Deep mutational scan, measured.
Amino acid sequence: MATADDFKLIRDIHSTGGRRQVFGSREQKPFEDLVDLGWLKRSSVDSRATHYQITERGTSAAL
């Protein structure tokens, strides 16, 4: 179930172009929650960072 923080984060991601790069596993937790909701997808993972991209469902949630 989505929380107020989830909606705040997806709106922030949407307003800044729909993509986010995250460093460190602790910082990934809120983004992984949005992946579980179907609002974000992991577009790539490298040794230092994970890249996320907003989905259509995420765009709808952000509006």
Results as ranks from 00 to 15, higher is better:
Asp46Glu: 09
Gln28Thr: 09
Gln53Asn: 07
Glu56Pro: 12
Ser43Pro: 04
Val45Ala: 10
Glu27Trp: 10
Gly17Pro: 02
Asp33Gly: 10
Arg11Val: 12
Arg42Pro: 06
Ser15Ile: 11
Ser44Glu: 12
Glu32Asp: 11
Ser60Pro: 02
Leu40Met: 04
Asp6Lys: 08
Thr16Arg: 09
Pro30Gly: 05
Ser47Cys: 07
Asp5Ile: 07
His51Asp: 12
Leu9Gly: 02
Asp12Leu: 11
Ala2Cys: 07
Lys29Ile: 07
Thr59Cys: 09
Asp6Thr: 05
Leu34Trp: 00
Ile13Thr: 02
Leu40Trp: 00
Ala4Ser: 10
Arg42Cys: 07
His14Pro: 00
Ser60Lys: 14
Gly38Trp: 03
Arg11Thr: 06
Pro30Cys: 06
Thr59Met: 12
Gly38Phe: 04
Ala2Pro: 14
Asp12Lys: 08
Arg26Met: 15
Arg42Phe: 05
Lys41Ala: 12
Ala49Phe: 12
Val22Met: 04
Gly24Glu: 08
Ala4Tyr: 10
Leu9Glu: 02
Arg19His: 15
Arg42Trp: 04
Ser25Ala: 13
Leu37Thr: 02
Lys8Tyr: 08
Gln21Thr: 15
Ile10Lys: 00
Phe7Asn: 03
His14Arg: 06
Lys29Phe: 04
Arg48Ile: 14
Phe7Ile: 09
Lys8Ser: 09
Gly38Met: 05
Gly17Glu: 05
Ser25Glu: 15
Ser44Met: 13
Arg19Tyr: 15
Arg26Thr: 15
Lys41Trp: 13
Glu27Thr: 07
His14Trp: 14
Tyr52Thr: 01
Gln28Pro: 05
Lys41Val: 15
Val45Gly: 09
Gly24Trp: 06
Ala49Val: 13
Ile10Arg: 00
Gly18Leu: 02
Ser43Phe: 14
Phe31Thr: 02
Arg57Leu: 15
Phe31Asp: 01
Ile13Asn: 00
Thr59Lys: 11
Lys29Glu: 08
Leu34Cys: 04
Thr55Leu: 03
Phe7Ser: 03
Gly58Thr: 00
Phe23Ile: 13
Glu56Phe: 08
Lys8Pro: 02
Ala62Tyr: 03
Thr55Trp: 00
Ser44Val: 13
Val35Ile: 07
Gly38Pro: 00
Gln53Lys: 08
